[in-house]
Design a protein around this nucleic acid. Structure first.
Lengths: 228, 228
DNA sequence: CTGCTTTCGCTACGAGTCGTAGCGTAACTG
DNA sequence: CAGTTACGCTACGACTCGTAGCGAAAGCAG
C-alpha cells in the first residue's frame, strides 16, 4: 500500500487538508486570500464521489484515480487537499454523523429508542457500512487515524449518552451521579453497549433493526437502571 | 485491487482451497492420493505467516508476496491453495475462535463473565484485532465471504449463548422458552450485545476489558433476566 | 491594467502489487 | 518403472500509488 515515497516529502508548501474536521461552511478561501482560491465545488464533488465509490467498491476497491475522475477533477487536486485515502474517507464519512441528535422525548425509554432508530438508519446506508468498518479496521494500525475517528465520530456520539442521562436525571428517572469517575465509566459502558450492539447486529449478523428489536434491546438496557 | 484478470480464469484444474473450514487434522493427502501430496508444513507456515503479517501490517499492508516469502514458500503455492486474500485470512483467523468454550461454572453470572473474559483475551491479540475488523469490512461487500465468516466465526459463538441459556434454564435461573421463535430472537439479541459491546470497547473505544468492567457489564445483562 | 500568487487539469514517471503462465524438478502412487 | 501432482523460480501485463513538471486559469494588490 505505501508504494513509493522517494525523498519522504521534503516539506509541504501549504498546510494541506484545509478541512481538519468541519471547515468554514461557505468560506471559499477564508484564511490567506492571496492566489486563486480552492474550488468549494470541487471539495463537495470529491467528498460525494468518495462516498459513492465507497459504497460501490468498498475500501479496498476505492481508488484515488477513480474518485478523481468521478468527481471530474485531476488526481493531483485530490492530493493537494488530502494527504491520503484515510483522511479523505474520514472527512467524507464524518459528516454523516452530524445528523444524530438527542431528542428528549420525555422518557428515558423513548429517548433510547429514538437514538437507536437514528443510529440504525445511518447504518442502513451502504456507504456508512463500508466506510465505518473500513475506518475502524485501519484505525487499529494507524494511531493518528484512530484519534481522528474518535474526535470526529465517537466523541460526538458519547455526548448523546451524556445528554440522555442528564435529562433522565432531571426527570428523576435516574439517580444523580455519586462521583464523576463512576459516571464517566457508566457513560462509556452504555455507549459501547448501544453502539456496539447495533453495529454488530447490522454489520456482522447482517439483520435489520426493527421496532420490535429496538423494544427488546431497550428492555435489556433499562433493566438495572430503573427501580427494581 | 482486482488488478489483472485477462481471460477470467478458464476453469480451475483442481478444487483449490483444500481447507473449506476445518480440514482433516493430520491428513496430508486424505482424499485422492495420486501425485505428490501437498505439504502440510507449508499450510501451517503460510497460515502462521499470514497471522503475523496481519498483526504487523494490517489488512491493507498484507501482501501475498510478503506472506509467501515469510513462509518460505513460492507465491504460486499460495495461489494454488487459496484463490484470494479473503479466503486465506478467514482460514488463518477462524482457528483462533476454536478455543472459545462455555464453561458451565454453576451460575449464569459466572458463565457470562467467563465467556466475556475469553472473548476479551482473544480480542486483546493484535492479529485478531486487525483480522476481525478487516474481515467484517470486506464481508460487507462480498456475500460469499460474509457467509464464510458467519459459518466459521459467528455461528460457533452463538452456540455458546444457547449452551449458557440451556444451563441456566436447567438450574432454574431462567424460565423455559415459551416458543422457539422467541427463543431464537432472544439468543440473537444477547449474542449481538455481548459480542458487539466487547468488540466496540476494545476495537473502537480502544480501552481494555478489566474484571471490574466485566462485572458492570454483566450487571447490565442480568438486569431483566433475573427475578426482580 | 499589470504583476504576483496559488490552484487547476494534464501528462509522465518510478516503485510496487496482483494473479497467471511456463519451466524444470521433487515427491509420492500404482 | 511410468504417471501424476506439487514445488520453487522467473517473467509477464495490467493496474495503483503518490509525485513532479508543465502551461493555463483565477483571483488579489498595486
Amino acid at each position: 500500500m505505501p508504494a513509493a515515497q522517494p525523498p519522504a516529502s521534503p516539506e509541504r508548501t501549504r498546510p494541506v487538508c484545509p478541512t481538519p474536521a468541519s471547515p468554514a461552511p461557505e468560506a471559499v478561501n477564508s484564511a490567506r486570500g492571496k492566489g486563486r482560491p480552492r474550488s468549494a465545488a470541487a471539495d463537495r464533488a470529491i467528498l460525494d464521489a468518495t462516498r459513492e465509490a465507497l459504497s460501490e467498491l468498498g475500501w479496498g476497491g476505492l481508488t484515488m484515480g477513480h474518485v478523481a475522475s468521478r468527481a471530474g477533477v485531476a488526481k493531483t487536486t485530490l492530493y493537494r487537499r488530502w494527504p491520503s485515502k484515510n483522511e479523505l474517507v474520514v472527512d467524507a464519512v464524518a459528516t454523516l454523523f452530524d445528523d444524530l441528535v438527542m431528542p428528549d422525548l420525555g422518557s428515558l425509554r423513548a429517548d433510547i429508542e429514538a437514538v437507536v432508530a437514528q443510529f440504525a438508519g445511518l447504518l442502513a446506508r451502504p456507504e456508512t457500512q463500508a466506510a465505518l468498518l473500513a475506518l475502524f479496521a485501519e484505525g487499529i494500525r494507524d494511531r493518528q487515524l484512530h484519534r481522528r475517528i474518535r474526535e470526529a465520530i465517537v466523541d460526538p456520539q458519547k455526548r448523546l449518552v451524556r445528554q440522555g442521562r442528564a435529562a433522565a436525571q432531571a426527570r428523576g428517572e435516574l439517580e444523580a451521579d455519586l462521583d464523576t469517575e463512576s459516571a464517566h465509566e457508566e457513560v462509556d459502558i452504555i455507549f459501547d453497549t448501544i453502539a456496539g450492539t447495533v453495529e454488530h447486529r447490522v454489520l456482522v449478523s447482517g439483520e435489520p433493526i426493527t421496532p420490535e428489536w429496538t423494544r427488546r434491546f431497550t428492555d435489556l438496557l433499562l433493566g438495572p437502571l430503573t427501580t427494581c
